[in-house]
Structure formats: structure tokens, C-alpha cells
Design a protein around this nucleic acid. Structure first.
Length: 123
RNA sequence: AAGGCAGGCUGUCUUAUCGCUACGUUUAGGCGUAGAGGAAAGUCCGGACACCAAAGAGUAGCAUAGCGGAUAACAUCCGUCGUUUCGUAUUUUUCGAAAUAGGACAAGUGCAACAGAAAGAAUGUACAGUUAGGCUGUAGUGAAACCAGGUAAACUCUAUGCGGUGUAAUGUUAAGUAAAUUGAAGUUUGAGAGUUACUCGCUCGAUUUCAAUGGGUAAGCAGCUAGAAUUACAAAGUAAUUUGUAAUGUAGAUAAAUGAUAGGAAUUACGUCUUUGGCGUAAUACAGAAUCCGGCUUAUAGGUCUGCUUUUUUA
RNA sequence: GCCCUUGUAGUUCAACGGAUAGAACAAAAGUUUCCUAAACUUUAGAUCUAGGUUCGAUUCCUAGCAAGGGUA
């Protein structure tokens, strides 16, 4: 499969996001944290995913944008782990960066793989 | 020549692979084109644009403050006068540079530590001008006592300007319902309610029936990027700036695109060597459009230019 | 996005433009005690930053920085 991450695959609806934060479950692998919820949505993709960085830890918009780009890149390169598994229920994902300084892509990539492995182990 | 300070300009380039957003094209896969800044930042001023007829009048409030000009407008910019500081020089003047919220204390009110006789109307001490009184001058304290005193980035006064809310404005499309809104008719008749900081004013009566609209769902689309546009040349003007001609097509996202990896080049720093260079390592600032413009302020590695200044060398 | 407020010792708060910025708690040292606590005595410690107005600024003005709040 192709490693894309297009508009339709991104988590955008405010309602879905607030549902996710009120009733979602979480997995953690510092400096990343995944909040997930099994829920039907309109997207043709199996998972709608978003990333977020708190303003408290990164005051400058440049830093926040950079980390979000790195997280999107890591998700894009690793999502095949889930799509190629036997699991097929629809989910919404939100990745939160809980660290307070910028990490390199390879670190984030490693943690992303760990989170996906943990996620698949649970089902 | 090297270093420091201040200001102006500039603000790394390139190839491949994997991706993102918009537009065009394509039956689909795909392909083509375009894709952050000088400050996009702070939100400190000024506008454009849109809506609010509950948008009116007055007061309050806020802003500005020599003079002339520029501009769509400004608290911005240009010129000039005054004032202050510095330099040259030195009796002053003149000259050069920098800074400057720079109306009014002769409308009224307030304030002035310490010192001083006295800080607002009081006339003291010593000396001198004259012998006494009175008057005048000098000394002494202080930032200010040269008197119609000082102080308005003290209240205040004067002149000028300002209606409010901000693109999440506003318009429109689809589904679809109220105890809400609007219109018409009937019945009844005046206590109250609402509105901008306040007053005047202004708006709204209550209930029943019928018809229409329609909260929320931060839904979709428009607004949304051709504009006080950019670049070049010429002319006018001391300048800010204006006018004319030609060329150019230059982001439009919305949990929010403009990225990642690998290689090469450039610059800088450090280390090392076989030292006009080679090799290795590291770094490449400040910072990310959110309706759009004009300014202001703040941040900024490296390069480059200008001014001032310090040290060394040579003449 | 828009709007507003506040910055004073380690903490919570004071201070008309005027002498050496004050109080409580906390901290340090000492006295007391076999030791600790309590009590008592003493000490150190601050106006967010940079300019300006003024004879003089925590106070007034301007710009920046930081923190907090409101609104949709």
C-alpha cells in the first residue's frame, strides 16, 4: 500500500474530537501518547487520525508546527502496521506530544511503532 | 590591518526518492503548474470592507498638540523653527552631529521631602547705598526665592478629531423542529420592559387565531485574494511623495498545506596534517500566512556597505 | 481571532511623587534543653526589563517581557 496521509484521512470534526477526549482510551510511549476510540465515521479510511502539541510545552508556533509535521510523517510511514493486520473496525486516533523538547524523527518513529504494537496486542 | 558599537541592505543553493495543499487536465491510476516573511510576530496606531435605523442629540470618555507639507488616513513620514546635550571653538555668536509628548500656570484648584527667615504672599538677618525710619542692591538655603515665581507624562482649560461591532462581520444552500421572531385580523388597554458609559430621546402593550421565518448542529459554499499591487524607466519636488509609460501574474490553508530522508555544493567555527591548501566534525539565525493594506515596535547566525571609536604598524 | 487585568523579600500582602521600601509566615545563626519542638534574641533577603518626565519615580508616561482571566 501507499504511504499517504490525505485530507479525508485526517481527524477534523469537532464533535468526533470532543467525543474522543471525553470517552477515549489511551496508550503512552514517551514522548507520544495515543488516545483512541472505536467509532463509526464517514471517512473511507479505516482510521481517522490527528496530531496535537500543547502550547504549554512549546510556546512558538514554529516548534509546534515542526513537531506536528514529524508526527504526521511518522504516522504516514508506519500506519501499514495496522492496515495490514487482521483488525478492521473503524477507529479515531489522536496523537499528543507530551514531551517538552523536540526529538528527532527516528526517536518518534520508534515510539510510534511501539504504540502500534501495543494497540494490536490489545485486540 | 584587527577589534568593538550603531544603522542600512541581504537573509544558503542544488539533485533524487517518499509525501502535503490549491488549481488545471484525465474514465481511474496519474500528469502539469504554483505554494511563507522581513518581520508573516507583538496587536501599539491608522484605514479599506461589512453589518447594526435602538446608528439621532448632549454629556462623559479617549486621542492628538510649535509651524508648513505628504497621504486614503494616522500617534506615521518629510522639511523647518525653538529647546537640550555633545564636538569644534571659546566672551558671546557662528558651524557640525544627535535627541526632543514642544499649546495654556496672566481662569480656578492642588502639590513642593530636606535645607531655608520665608515655597505663597511673607518681608527676617548681616553688609552697603544715606544718620533714624522707609526704599534699593548684595550675601546665605534650595531643583525653584531674577514675582503676573515653579509644576499640566498634577487635576484642569483651550483647539481639533472619534457612533458601535469586527471577516467567527455578513450573505447564501440543504435537511428540519420549538416555549423564539415577523406580518395580518379579533378582543382588551397601560403597569412596565429593553437599548449604547450616562441623560434626553428611541423601540416594545398583553392575549387568541392564521400565515411566514427559524436556535442549535462552531454543517457546506461565497466573503478569499488584481490591490492605495510589484518591478523598471522618465518627469516634478530640498524631501516625504506624486504623475506618466512599459512589463509582470505573485499562497489561500481551516485540529489549519508549504514537509521528511539521502547525497552534493557554499559559508562559518573547531580539531588535525605534508599549511597560498587538504581532511574530519559541527553549525547555518530570528521565525510560520489565517480578510486585506499603510506605519510603528520588538527578534535576528552569517555576509556586505556606511558612520563613530580603541589598539598596533608604516609614512 | 478579539478583549481585559496583574507584576514588590522564598510565599501572602502594604506603602500621598519625598529620610535607610514595611508586616506576617518561611530561611540562617544564637540562647534555652541530654536532644528535638515551642519560646526568645539577631541576621540576610525584594520594587519584571529598558528608556523618558521630574530637583527626586515602587508610584506618572512609552516600549518590551512574563503570568492570569474573559469571549465566540
Amino acid at each position: 500500500m501507499r504511504n499517504t496521509f490525505k485530507k479525508e484521512e485526517k481527524l477534523k470534526s469537532r464533535n468526533l474530537i470532543s467525543d474522543l477526549f471525553t470517552s477515549g482510551k489511551s496508550l503512552s510511549a514517551y514522548p507520544l501518547k495515543l488516545i483512541y476510540l472505536q467509532k463509526e465515521h464517514d471517512s473511507p479510511f479505516m482510521i481517522q487520525a490527528g496530531v496535537t502539541v500543547t502550547k504549554r510545552n512549546f510556546k512558538k508556533a514554529v516548534d509546534r508546527n515542526r513537531i506536528k509535521r514529524l508526527m504526521r510523517e511518522a504516522y504516514r510511514l508506519n500506519k501499514h502496521l495496522i492496515y495490514e493486520s487482521e483488525y478492521t473496525k473503524k477507529h479515531i486516533f489522536m496523537f499528543i506530544y507530551t514531551g517538552n523538547h523536540e526529538e528527532k524523527l527516528e526517536v518518534i518513529d520508534k515510539k510510534m511503532k511501539k504504540i502500534f504494537r501495543d494497540f494490536l496486542k490489545k485486540y
